[in-house]
Amino acid sequence: MQTEVRRSGTELTVKRRNAVTGFKRQWPLYLLMVLPMTFFITFKYIPMLGVVVAFKDYNIFKGIWASEWVGLDVFREIFAMPQFYKALRNTLMLNVISLLTFPIPIILALMLNELRINWYKRLSQTLLYLPHFISWVIVGGMAIQLLATHTGSVNEFIKSLGGQPIPFLENTIMWILTYTGAGVWHYAGWGTILYLAALTGINKELYEAAEVDGASRMRKIWHIALPGIKPTIVVLFIIQIGRMADISFEQPYALQNGYVMDVAQVISTYVYTVGIQSAQFALAAAVGLFQSVVGLVLLLTAELISRKVNNQGIF
């Protein structure tokens, strides 16, 4: 018994020495981590204390902690609102439609990876991911200028050919298609860059061996490229599933208008109009908490299914 205690004590001492030695050697790396850790603690973790607002009759003059505790009353009020269910339905619907476009960045990355003219490949990459850096406010203005029923450039061109103008921003079905297309244009290029980075990590000897065996380009893509980026695809797909109950504020708010509010009002814009503009901060916090919990459940479910089926996941 004493021998085992002595041995465990020796092992602990060795581990401590190794940890101290490692810290002394790599202290610049630990120092570089201080700033991002400070950022996340300050702007991500400390604000989580504000979640308590969802369980209080929040009064801006009393503050968070002095406001009266009401438990789940705010959530009961939310679940009694028909508009909340409509916003939840629209959020899930738009995210499911966006999920159908998930393969587009993969296809674009595979196509770019097969290009052999370097200047054309670089130009294509730049044109694809440039929209990611354009604000949705600008994109919304561009959509109005191009797609407005009576004054948009696209409809002016259609009318010049003798056709009828298409209500891209006023008809619900056309608005959904416009919303989805704008999302693909805005985000696909950035996803393409991620998959291209994964493709560059594939061992070149695999391609050389396939070439010796006489494999065609499609065979190389199917048997080398896709299996090589499979972990990246799985991780990004799980993250996408986890965001099914979440949706950005900028895109729907920039594209919505009074004609399509039945499909354009999503949870993020609902929180803004009902919670923030009406100064019902407890309601906004409760909806946000509900959204986060649903997103966490979806993320963990997708992770579990991925582990069972592919033996791969995030965690």
Rank of each mutant, 00 (worst) to 15 (best):
V234A: 05
L108G: 01
F290V: 10
A148I: 03
G140Q: 07
E250K: 10
T151E: 05
T273L: 15
Q291F: 02
F55E: 00
L115K: 08
I104D: 04
T151L: 11
I305V: 12
V20R: 11
A245N: 02
A225L: 00
D213C: 08
I238H: 04
S292N: 15
V70N: 00
I60W: 02
Y179V: 10
Y187V: 14
T13Q: 14
Y85N: 05
I134P: 01
A210R: 10
Q164C: 02
G295T: 08
H186W: 12
A285T: 09
K121M: 07
L108Q: 02
A225T: 03
A197E: 12
D213H: 02
V70E: 01
I106R: 12
F157T: 14
L196W: 03
H223W: 09
T10K: 06
Q312Y: 10
K24I: 14
G181Y: 15
V51G: 12
G162T: 06
R16L: 13
T269S: 13
Q291P: 06
I247H: 01
A198T: 04
V139E: 02
L161C: 15
V5D: 09
G9E: 06
P231N: 07
P131M: 10
N155E: 09
I176E: 04
T13F: 12
I239F: 02
A302M: 01
A182V: 14
L94M: 15
K159T: 11
L12D: 03
M1I: 14
L112G: 01
I176F: 03
L108T: 03
P252C: 11
V14W: 13
E211N: 14
F23R: 11
F61G: 06
V263R: 00
Y187P: 00
T172L: 04
I107P: 00
A188H: 03
T149V: 13
N311P: 03
N257V: 11
F75K: 03
T3C: 06
V184T: 06
M48A: 12
W185V: 13
S135V: 06
S160F: 06
A210C: 07
F315S: 13
R116D: 04
I134T: 08
R219T: 13
L304G: 10
T10I: 05
M261D: 07
H186L: 12
V137N: 12
M142Y: 05
P227D: 07
R17G: 09
G183L: 08
L92Y: 03
G181P: 03
S67N: 11
L298P: 14
T101R: 10
G189C: 15
K204Y: 02
